[in-house]
């Protein structure tokens, strides 16, 4: 039996998936979720074989929800929202259903899942890559979602002081706290507004709004001082570029 989770903030949208799924005896709906928070919990608990996922939902959208998961399940997006997503997804996600969709369209999405399901590792690689490459929804440039134990927090990017590389993870520092996330420095360097965030060093990105001073540490070696008193190393080329950026 294949476990299915449906995540959509509109009950009517969920009910159409449920109705269509009734014809499939090899699927069992293990959870229905109203939003991304419930979705994260349900996916971690049930480890579903397939997830139907809406994109526009309250607080965190479908993409952000996927970012919070350690392992990405097979996903069929079901949304009324086209633009960015369609382009990026036709190739990569199991499928992308544009609401309102017909039973025939739904059937072909399930067929695609059956095909991909035979080749799981390749699929997983695809969707991880997809999350990195997809053009960001506008709201995602203004906030970062993180998971700590069982809590999900939304951090406005303005509240970030700096980001530090940490093995396969990165640490997102706010004024007096930090959050771990499994992402790359390159990802954030690209995603964040480059007029505000600056990569000072191989392992550091700082928020220029929090920068107060550049201090010499020793000969040819400088550190950036942030408003919360933190000192962030500047690489030699980082120092040169930062001076250029600030026009000094």
């Amino acid at each position: 039996m294949n476990k299915v989770i449906i995540i959509d903030d509109e009950p009517l949208a969920r009910s159409i998936v449920i109705e269509y799924l009734q014809d499939y005896k090899n699927f069992e709906i293990v959870a229905e979720c109203n939003d991304g928070f419930e979705g994260v919990k349900a996916i971690m608990q049930h480890k579903p074989d397939l997830v139907f996922l809406d994109i526009q939902m309250p607080k965190i959208n479908g993409f952000e929800m996927l970012e919070l998961l350690d392992t990405t399940p097979a996903v069929i997006f079901a949304t009324a929202f086209d633009e960015y997503a369609i382009k990026a997804f036709e190739a990569n996600a199991v499928d992308y259903l544009l609401k309102p969709f017909s039973y025939e369209r739904f059937e072909s999405a399930i067929k695609k899942w059956e095909l991909k399901n035979m080749d799981k590792p390749a699929y997983k690689k695809n969707i991880d890559q997809l999350l990195e490459n997809t053009e960001k929804q506008p709201e995602e440039k203004h906030r970062v979602v993180v998971r700590t134990n069982n809590e999900i927090q939304i951090i406005p990017v303005n509240d970030l002081y700096y980001i530090e590389a940490y093995d396969d993870y990165i640490k997102l520092f706010t004024k007096d706290n930090y959050y771990l996330k499994k992402k790359t420095m390159a990802y954030y360097e690209q995603m964040l507004d480059s007029s505000v965030f600056f990569r000072t060093h191989r392992s550091f990105i700082i928020n220029l709004q929090q920068l107060t001073k550049i201090e010499p540490l020793e000969k040819n070696n400088y550190v950036a001082l942030l408003k919360n008193g933190k000192k962030i190393p500047l690489s030699r080329s980082g120092y040169v570029k930062l001076k250029e950026k600030l026009g000094i």
Binding site: K59, E139, H142, R143, I154, P156
Partner: peptide
């Protein structure tokens, strides 16, 4: 409305 995320939308 939610003050915290209001600016993002």
């Amino acid at each position: 409305f939610d003050e915290k995320i209001q600016h993002s939308n």
